[in-house]
Amino acid sequence: MSQDRASRYQAFIFDLDGTLIDSAPDIAAAVNAYLQEQGHAALEVAYVERFIGNGPRRLIRDILLDQGIVLEDAALDDAVQAYIGHYRRHPASHTRFFPHVKEDLENLHAAGFRLGICTNKPHALTRQILDLLALSPLVEVALGADAVPACKPDPGHLRAVARHMALPEGAWAYIGDTPVDQATAEAAGVPFFVVPWGGGGEVQVLPSQRLRRLRDLLSYKIAPLATPPSTTT
């Protein structure tokens, strides 16, 4: 769904990993902590980063399969919980905002935009990281993968965030960095923008959907209603 400057929004919902924050080093550290416990070699951050975006179970399953390791469901469940445990102990030691993201979010918030987050990261871990990065005061609603019946690319995940924010139809857009984010927005029938960092450069969108930085979204502000001229009698 394309956007132009005639479009106006009250709110934006964002993906988290790869869109607002570069969390790959901490995710890779947690993956490697689990792997090394099991006697496997540590993996490079860039390698792990290829598998981020579909939630922790897919992350661990897909990495293990790519490494030639197949686990039954119960063992995979244990592996995922071990990974999450490691991640929660060090959730933001090396995580950083992408350039200008924090200041642009602050400017969007100050301009009156309402902000939400829809992420496939576990919900409690999401809240922990938002607190550590001082994002919680800016974000009205954040829903992780396990806070909904089905997570992205299921459109119900994104729509659940909008529902919790009581957003009217047509008054908001979704911003992400992966084809999963794009597919989620399309399935939900909402406008989509892609950032240039994270995996954004690989997402195929119209030029009007490609942001240079988040402050570009300021131009989509709903104009305030004009104040009628006062009259005297």
Rank of each mutant, 00 (worst) to 15 (best):
L167R: 01
L132N: 06
K152Y: 12
D146T: 02
K152P: 09
A173L: 09
S136A: 01
H157D: 11
V148P: 08
A162E: 00
A173K: 10
R159I: 12
A150G: 02
L135P: 04
L158W: 10
W172E: 08
G156Y: 08
A171K: 14
H157T: 11
I175S: 11
W172Y: 11
D154P: 08
P149G: 10
V161H: 04
A162L: 00
L132E: 10
A147H: 10
A134T: 07
V139F: 04
G144R: 00
E140M: 06
S136I: 02
A173W: 10
K152F: 11
P168L: 14
V148W: 01
G170N: 10
Y174E: 09
A134I: 00
Y174L: 13
Y174I: 13
E140R: 01
A166L: 12
E169C: 00
P155C: 13
S136Q: 02
H157W: 11
W172N: 08
R159C: 15
I175M: 13
T178K: 12
P149I: 09
A166R: 05
Y174K: 06
D154A: 14
A150H: 14
A160L: 09
E169Y: 11
D154Y: 03
L158A: 10
A171Y: 12
D146H: 09
A173T: 11
R159S: 11
A173P: 04
G170P: 05
G170H: 13
P149M: 14
D177W: 15
A150C: 07
V139I: 15
P149Y: 10
V161A: 05
G144Q: 02
L132Y: 03
A150V: 15
A150N: 14
A160M: 03
P155F: 04
A134P: 00
H157V: 13
P179S: 15
E140N: 08
V139A: 00
L132V: 01
A166V: 11
V161R: 10
A173C: 04
M165G: 00
M165T: 02
D146P: 05
P149D: 04
R159N: 14
K152V: 05
E140C: 05
I175D: 08
P137Q: 05
H164K: 03
D177A: 15
H164Y: 06
P153A: 13
V161I: 01
P179V: 14
H164C: 03
L132D: 04
V161Q: 08
L158M: 12
V161F: 07
M165Y: 10
L133W: 05
P137Y: 00
L133A: 06
Y174Q: 06
V141W: 00
E169D: 14
D146N: 09
P168Y: 00
G156F: 13
Y174G: 03
P137A: 05
L158K: 08
Y174H: 06
T178I: 13
A134M: 03
P149N: 07
P137C: 07
G144I: 02
H157P: 11
V148L: 01
A134Q: 08
Y174M: 09
G144M: 07
G144A: 07
L143T: 05
S136G: 01
A150M: 12
V148D: 04
V161Y: 06
A147N: 04
P168T: 14
K152I: 09
A142C: 10
